[in-house]
Write a protein that binds this DNA or RNA. Structure first.
Lengths: 141, 141
DNA sequence: ACTATACTTGACCATTTTAGTCAAGTATGT
DNA sequence: ACATACTTGACTAAAATGGTCAAGTATAGT
């Protein structure tokens, strides 16, 4: 099981954004420099975040991105969903008329992954951007 | 985030094994046929399970594998650990003297993954092979 | 002792996913 | 007009995944 860095970057970038948001739109270039994430990659990520209305873009000279909602309204689950970071349960083929793996019975792990998925999602649903914002300022050196 | 099928196969195979264990050692060939998992791949997996003393091998004509412990003593966490299925947190480079990503500060996601990891592991530590065994017989068609 | 069965080990490989890069735009504030 | 910044889409090197293939070794039963 693993978490990809796309999800991690999205979270890092949004925390960065939330921190500077209040004053002006934040350009991806600034985020790129501050967080050490490739600008090209950030563009991909923010395009998805925008599609899910987590951020808004503002064009023009002093443009950039701003959050669409307040930090406490943005849950991790929203962020991960936006960038297609999901809990894949490596499920059995669902197409067949028979059970899992072409057997007559439901495979023994079938319910297990469902339970696990719920368990993980409950974690992501509880954590908001605001929570991260707090702990990140605590950790500042 | 995803779970690989190696972990899923390991769980499926062990539940199968646990179900027939009481009578005789179970050959990988039987498990392969019943669960629809490639024999060659099962060999790889069981080699790891054996190294972590989750199963014992019995050679010879009527040989096969048996569980090393009782089903309620085998937790999912043990199984996943054995087959190298782990929660990868896609962490920041740890080598540098500075903080994450060469920045002066700890990156904001640093603690987050730690928390998540604990959350997931607590799930795996609770579930034993016996639990799965029960629910698998309930689901039989 | 022989042999079939079953475990053991290690090299190898095709496909998919990841983590980006590159290029060519379009929109807008000043 | 023009610099800045967002937008879109094609492309790709490297790693992980999900296996296969080959060549053994050990042992129970006859």
């Amino acid at each position: 099981m693993k978490l990809t860095s796309k999800g991690r970057y999205a979270v890092m970038a949004l925390v960065d954004l939330a921190r500077f948001d209040s004053i002006n739109p934040v350009s991806l270039r600034d985020i790129s420099l501050r967080q050490g994430i490739s600008l090209d990659y950030l563009e991909q990520i923010f395009s998805k975040l925008k599609k899910d209305q987590i951020v808004k873009s503002i064009r023009g000279t002093q443009g950039g991105y701003v959050l669409s909602k307040k930090p406490n309204e943005i849950k991790l689950t929203n962020i991960f969903h936006a960038v297609d970071e999901k809990v894949k349960t490596v499920q059995c083929k669902k197409d067949s008329k028979k059970g899992c793996n072409g057997k007559a019975t439901k495979c023994v792990t079938h319910n297990l992954w469902d339970e696990l998925e719920n368990h993980i999602n409950s974690f992501f649903e509880k954590k908001s951007l605001e929570d991260l914002l707090k702990s990140s300022t605590e950790n500042r050196i």
